Simulated scan of single mutants.
Amino acid sequence: MEVSPLNINRGPLLVFSGQSNIPLAQEICQHLGIPLGRSETVKFTNDNIIVQYEESLREGDVFIVQSFSTPVSDAIMELMLLIDAAKSASAGRVTAVIPYYSYARSDKKDAPRISIAGRLVADLLQEAGADRILTMTLHSSQVHGFFKVPVDHLSSDRILGEHFQRVVPHAHEGVVLAPDAGSIKRAAAIAHRLNSGLAFIDKQRTSDTTVDPRALIGDVQGKNVFIVDDEISTAGSLVEAVNFAKRMGAKDVYVAVTHGVYTGPAVERIRALDAVQVASTNTVLVPESKIEGSGGKMHVLSVAQLFADAIRNIHTGESVSTLFE
């Protein structure tokens, strides 16, 4: 009997999805050549959630796709219920696939009497029964340490770099700009892929709530500038970075981030932004209405193939890190 390449080391590969990003889960399954697993989630009038699988999971290698996007608390609760239900249904292994782990921003105690929510959510997922975590572009790599189970941390650097090369002729003549010192490592990796220049904005805190740009380290005068970051939320920091780059003599500005959260006034700010385009990946589901509201500036890049490859390698016991070599 011929053995399927997706059924080598353990039970059958099964991929399910919570409600937060079903289109991404469906696209992942298309690349894997398997159907998306059948499950049902019901939210009662008292806000309680119930989940139920509609097929057998016994001894299966189960992957559950769920981004922590709005409403975040519902997404986390649904994922924990799906994990718990899978373990109760005798799944062989359960991997939580979290394309966007929003609580990664809460990674340290930087104020008195607060919770390190990134660690708390990690504890909850493990207590629910997650055997493994697959995620992308955590705000801080130290979030790895919050988990006692294996974590595979994917990077969107290749996808963002290839996007710049597609939309900008001679991208290697441009400059990748990190909007702050914390983004330098990511910007440097993409600059290396493009064989381009590198710059970053040095900021100083002027109050408890305000951080202003102080200097631009690097040369952007007359050059195309590629701003990269982990996510866009309200787009306030993005507006600041783009405006500062233009004041420093940048030619055209292109933006690409991993997580396009786009909350509050983000769409209106992007529409008025002095940038050619703003791209994000589909780790977060971006409604078509927001894309249209940006005046054609917002674009969505797919990471489904990368997640599919990672899931395949995890299932067959191959290295995930080889995907980035």
Rank of each mutant, 00 (worst) to 15 (best):
P169T: 03
P12C: 09
L323V: 07
V3R: 15
D219T: 02
R205H: 04
T210A: 10
S289L: 11
S207W: 03
G161S: 09
F324A: 02
F147L: 02
H170F: 13
F324I: 00
S280K: 01
E55I: 09
F146N: 02
L24G: 07
M248E: 14
N224Q: 11
S4T: 04
A250M: 05
V228T: 08
T283E: 03
V278F: 03
R312W: 00
L306Q: 12
I83Y: 08
S319G: 06
H170S: 15
K109M: 14
F244L: 10
I28T: 07
V257L: 05
S69A: 13
G293P: 02
K185A: 14
V72I: 15
A199R: 01
H139N: 12
V167F: 11
P99V: 09
K246N: 09
G296F: 04
S4M: 07
F146P: 04
A256G: 13
V267G: 03
G197N: 11
G293L: 12
V94T: 11
D74V: 10
N48V: 10
N7H: 15
P12M: 13
G249I: 10
S237T: 15
Y262Q: 06
T70K: 15
R271T: 00
S17K: 07
A117L: 13
A279M: 04
A91K: 06
Q66D: 08
R247H: 11
H170P: 00
A256L: 10
S102W: 10
A181W: 04
G260R: 01
V242L: 12
F200L: 12
Y101M: 09
S90A: 15
P169H: 04
S115Q: 12
F147Q: 02
A241C: 10
K246W: 08
V284H: 04
V51D: 01
A191H: 03
I50K: 14
A181Y: 10
A199M: 00
A25M: 07
N7C: 13
V261W: 04
S183Q: 11
T209Q: 14
L134H: 05
P5C: 10
G92L: 12
S302F: 01
A117Q: 10
A241H: 05
V143Y: 03
V94W: 09
T258F: 05
V303K: 01
L125V: 09
S106E: 14
Q305C: 02
E325V: 11
R193P: 00
Q165E: 13
T45G: 04
E240S: 15
H299S: 11
T70H: 14
D84A: 15
